[in-house]
Computed example of a mutant assay.
Amino acid sequence: MPESLDLARVIAAAVVLAVALVVAIVLRMLSGRLNKRAGDTRWAWDDLAARLLHDLAVPLSLLAGVWGAANALSLKAGTLSGTANVLTAIAIIVITLACARMFAGVVASIAMARQGVAANVTIFANITRVVVLGIGMLVMLQSLGVSITPLLGALGVGGLAVALALQDTLANLFAGVHVLASKTIEPGDYIRLSSGQEGYVVDINWRNTSIRTLSDNIEVIPNQRFSDTILTNYHRPAQDMSLLIQAKVSYGADLEYVEKVVVEIGDAVMAEIEGAVKEGQTLVRFHTWGESSIDFTAILRITEFGEQFRIKHEFLKRLHRRFDSEGIEIPLPTRRVLLPENGRAADDLVLR
């Protein structure tokens, strides 16, 4: 009789495990379909909820099956209690990992919505993961009967020592958070530091910021550098910007006609060349009586900082060709030296 009873318990436990496995497979299939359907929508929150269900379906079903099997076997009270503690700890770990992934996705979605589709910011997501995992570990220890009060006190003292040892790292961390919170720079912006580094911001993580230079190299800059340097952001307040091109003409040129020619060339370049603001207006401003020329600035509009080289290249080619065909002189620097001879001024000598 006892042997048949034990066999019946084993069979019951096996049936419970089999049912739990079937439920886990069914939930996995359903959550997979739900996850796929959620991916077809534009709303990001349903993707995160579907992914959470997809992550929790199988492990929680199997844990529930193991707990049911343990009860079906009618284990001793101590063994059953230990099994419950272990299963609870495993469940907390599984839920913590899934929640860390979900909350990191929530933070990433919010950052994406605020900073644009090109944003690639990892610092907020990483901080979120660390916080959720830390809370989960404390809850797991508490569930196992470990008092976390002394642990928190030890962590406080140890945290102070770690903070003193990692001053530079923490300074970079908080500097990165401050930069992102204040939206001084964002991934995709073109920046230039007073120390000379410049390029497109690629990523801002917990320690440093990566920028891609125009020569396609990556420069890594500590976040703390941004708090004690002068920074120019060429994508603020907007990406489109004015391109200032310096030029000069001789004193004998008709300035009205020169302005007309430069405006025609500038408008043609902005209308035809990619990277220019199509509806932009070319401006000409004469500003300096030079030693051998009248200097002026041509002002064009470009869509973003990196387009200036193409626009400037095409504008100068066309302007040089047009000045040459119109007979507008681009003067070379000259000096006039007067040499006294027998008390009278000598002939002028022109130095080129």
Rank of each mutant, 00 (worst) to 15 (best):
M140I: 08
G199L: 01
I204Y: 11
L52C: 08
V201I: 01
L53C: 09
G280D: 02
L180V: 14
T128W: 04
Q224H: 11
A118T: 01
V58Q: 09
R192F: 06
G275C: 03
V16T: 15
W67G: 12
D254C: 06
I123T: 11
E256Y: 12
E274C: 05
A98K: 03
E314N: 03
G290D: 08
V220M: 09
V263N: 03
Q115A: 12
E272P: 04
M270S: 12
N85T: 13
F174Q: 01
D228L: 04
S182P: 01
S242C: 06
V263Y: 03
V132I: 15
S61P: 03
P237F: 02
A271N: 10
F226V: 07
E219K: 09
V269W: 04
F174A: 00
V16F: 12
N205I: 05
S293P: 05
V58K: 03
I328G: 04
E256R: 13
M137S: 11
I311F: 12
V162W: 13
L87S: 05
W206A: 14
I148V: 13
D55Y: 11
W67D: 05
T229E: 15
I127S: 08
G343W: 03
G78S: 14
N217Y: 06
D55C: 12
L52S: 10
L316F: 09
P237H: 01
E274H: 09
T209C: 13
V26A: 14
S147F: 08
V263R: 14
D189S: 07
V10R: 03
A181S: 10
G159C: 01
L5A: 11
L30E: 08
G156P: 00
A72H: 05
R236W: 02
S250N: 11
L319T: 07
I273M: 07
A89L: 05
Y190Q: 07
K183E: 15
L244I: 13
L180D: 08
I230G: 09
A154M: 09
V23A: 09
M270G: 09
L332C: 01
V132S: 08
D216K: 02
K76F: 04
N342L: 12
I302M: 06
G68F: 04
I148N: 01
S109P: 04
I204A: 10
N208Y: 12
D267S: 13
Q308A: 13
Q167I: 10
E304C: 08
L349T: 14
S293N: 11
S31C: 12
V117W: 02
L243T: 05
D47W: 10
G134Q: 03
S74P: 00
R37C: 00
T213I: 07
D203R: 14
L34Q: 04
A108T: 13
I93M: 15
R321G: 05
F174D: 01
G65A: 02
F305A: 11
N233M: 07
P187T: 02
R192T: 13
N35S: 15
R51P: 00
A253V: 08
P222H: 05
L351V: 15
A89W: 05
G196S: 04
V10Q: 10
